[in-house]
Nucleic acid binder design. Structure first.
Length: 640
RNA sequence: GCUCAUAUAGCUCAGUGGUAGAGCACUUGCUUGGUAAGUAAGAGGUCACCGGUUCAAGUCCGGUUAUGAGCUCCA
């Protein structure tokens, strides 16, 4: 048979040759380095016989694929074996690879602690030191079930499989350990690189919260120590950017027990919030949105009509009026969304087709009762404000509204320092409202709009809301993490439920389409993203303090005060530091506070009427006249 | 909501059953110092909350609340 290699060369080998045989024809270096093969696009073990003409490439640990196979062997063969050695009664569930590493789910008799991870790691090192080779055997379903009488989770996997036989079991040399696995695996433990067990967590069997909670051990693995170290360092970097840590350090906001998931904004944090809101408000005004404001506490009758009472109640804060003091007893809910209230505004007065598209915007304060374990700093809260908006339009207007929304969103993201974003188009789910024709039209409209703008997008079939298709917009931050922020959802359901209508050209009543849309998502979450993206060093226009003026000696206090007053008149966010401290002390403090500009004033500056500026992140000094500096800072302080 | 962990001064954290600690921050004094921590002193605590064990609990046990990691959810 003919084996075609990636460089196009063809080798003639006898039928039944293995990946190892192919490597031997190429060179001894490759024999040593080979860990698996890809044959006609499918990954196989190095020992698997090839029976027909194939395109084959040999996988080494240098490649992403090789690294993944190594991680897989490490979890399924080494971690699992180490745990069984130390805790013979532990039950094995599953052990896949994930980004940068792997995990394995176990059921332990007694809970284990993070200290146990050290013991397990040591045991893993011992197993690896054995350099055991790994071999595979195929078994029938009955044989396989028989082999795993002590492993209920493995049995469950085998039993629920459609496969009749050829279940793969991998054995290590000494036969003390074997495990069911899809493979491929390394041919020997010699190929294992550097690894570390990182954390311990609970995880449901098969990801279902009704099932038993297993213990998941996470680890990371790399081809050598250098890569492992670099990865651990990148984790530390991400930790340094944590908005909860920076928020505390820079005194931006806090949370406390009496209001879990609700932000207490401090003066500097609230400056950022207001700047961001003013910025978005200007953009919305320019885009033809009309800003409105609607109640936060609304009678359950409206939520029943909108369908939230049925579908969303467990996420809602419900309030009762104190019977002792109220004459009437009614049940209200804090609004979890703004849409039903926006329809109420729309419904005031008869609307004509000439009024459409009608774009309402609201910085809508919403409350959702999120499950206690899901909250996370500013990123997932119970009380938040959306940069929400609802567009009432005709089906024919969906496309042009999509286009103008994406243009608005691109502009806002780019001004905020995010050069690019990904778009996901989610189409009709199985359970949905509205006719297929309307869905066709709406999906087409969204897709056409993206295409006309020439933007790439990813199709997420069946992931749309039950009321209509949607677009989601995902940002990538400075260290490569993704954040879903913007959303654009067509809705054919709510206008009907809440009786929204317009008079068409034909003089009769029609139902408008309602588009739910947000660019930032929520101010809280977006500020969290901004803090992490900029590692707290916000651009000048968003910095709570734009500059701090530091005097070197008290002789120049008057000069410093004069400069400060002038900057304040121009609405530049200036602070004055006249404390009796050394200049290096002040510089350290304001640098740590991430103030973008530090102005240093001493006798020289006072005598020459100049100012000396030090930029955050640089130890260079620049000398300006006050007016020169003002020109520059005003230019720089407008959003880019 | 589930599993595991954590909760001590404003912050970061030490404290393994016997009088509550450190560094930074804060206040006061000295120091007027030219680009990332000058110096001395002082003040600061219901050891998250409720209960239990014990002669004795910050420490051990149980519960509650919050936070963290992950899962589930959400999008």
């Amino acid at each position: 048979m003919n084996i075609t290699l990636p460089d196009g060369s063809v080798k003639e080998l006898p039928k039944g040759s293995t990946g190892l045989d192919i490597a031997k024809t190429i060179g001894p270096g490759l024999v040593k380095a080979a860990v698996a093969i890809t044959a006609n696009g499918i990954q196989k073990d190095l020992s698997d016989p090839i029976e027909e003409d194939s395109e084959v490439s040999i996988i080494t640990i240098e490649s992403e694929e090789g690294l993944e196979i190594m991680r897989h062997t490490l979890t399924a063969q080494v971690l699992a074996r180490a745990v069984k050695n130390l805790y013979p009664k532990a039950k094995l569930a599953i052990g896949p690879t994930i980004k940068d590493g792997f995990y394995y789910d176990f059921e332990f008799e007694k809970p284990i602690s993070p200290e146990d991870l050290v013991k397990i790691e040591d045991e893993m090192q011992k197993i690896i030191a054995s350099s055991s080779s790994i071999t595979k055997k195929l078994h029938s379903k009955a044989e396989t079930l028989n082999a795993f009488t002590e492993e209920p989770y493995k049995q469950s996997i085998v039993e629920s499989s459609d496969q009749k036989d050829n279940f793969q079991i991998y054995y290590q040399d000494d036969r003390n350990f074997f495990d069911l696995c899809k493979g491929p695996h390394l041919p020997s433990l010699k190929h294992i690189g550097s690894f570390k067990l990182t954390k311990l967590a609970g995880a449901y069997w098969k990801g279902n919260s009704k099932n038993k909670m297993l213990t998941r051990i996470y680890g990371t693995a790399w081809k050598n120590d250098k890569d492992l170290k670099a990865y651990m360092l990148s984790l530390e970097e991400a930790e340094k950017r944590d908005h909860r840590k920076i928020g505390k350090e820079l005194n931006l906001f806090h949370f406390q027990e009496e209001a879990p998931g609700m932000v207490f904004w401090h003066p500097d944090g609230w400056i950022i919030y207001r700047l961001l809101q003013d910025f978005v408000r200007k953009k919305l005004d320019a885009c033809g949105y009309k800003e409105i404001n609607t109640p936060q506490v609304v009678d359950r009758k409206l939520w029943e009509a909108s369908g939230h009472w049925d579908k969303y109640r467990e996420n809602m804060f419900i309030t009762e009026i104190d019977e002792e003091h109220a004459n009437e007893k009614r049940t209200n809910a804090l609004k979890p969304m703004n849409c039903p209230c926006h329809v109420q505004v729309y419904n005031q007065g008869l609307k004509s087709y000439r009024d459409l598209p009608l774009r309402y915007a609201e910085f809508g304060s919403c409350h959702r009762y999120e499950a206690s374990g899901t909250m996370h700093g500013l990123m997932r809260v119970r009380g938040f404000t959306q940069d929400d908006g609802h567009i009432f339009c005709t089906e024919d207007q969906i496309e042009s509204e999509t286009k103008s929304f994406i243009e608005l969103l691109s502009e806002i993201y780019s001004d905020l320092g995010f050069g690019s974003f990904d778009i996901k188009l989610s189409t009709r789910p199985e359970v949905r409202v509205g006719s297929d024709q309307v869905w066709d039209k709406a999906e087409q409209a969204l897709e056409n709009a993206i295409k006309k703008l020439g933007l790439p997008y990813e199709l997420d079939e069946g992931d749309g809301a039950f009321y209509g298709p949607k677009l989601d917009f995902v940002l990538t931050d400075a260290i490569g993490r993704e954040w879903q922020c913007g959303t654009f959802q067509a809705d054919f359901n709510l206008p009907g439920r809440l009786d929204a209508e317009y008079i068409g050209e034909d003089g009769s009543k029609h139902q408008p389409v309602m588009i739910h849309r947000a660019v930032l998502g929520s101010f809280e979450r977006f500020i969290g993203v901004l803090i992490e993206n900029y590692a707290g060093k916000l651009p000048l226009w968003l910095a709570p303090t734009q500059l701090t003026i530091c005097s070197i000696t008290s002789d120049v206090n008057e000069y410093a005060q004069k400069i400060h007053n002038r900057l304040k008149e121009l609405n530049i966010r200036s602070k004055l530091d006249l404390r009796n401290e050394k200049i290096s002390y002040k510089i350290r403090e304001h640098s740590n506070a991430k103030v973008p500009n530090i102005i240093v004033l001493g006798k020289n500056e006072a005598a020459s009427e100049m100012i000396t500026v030090r930029r955050l992140g640089s130890s260079e000094n620049f000398s300006y006249s006050l007016e020169e500096f003002i020109d520059q800072i005003i230019k720089e302080a407008s959003p880019k």
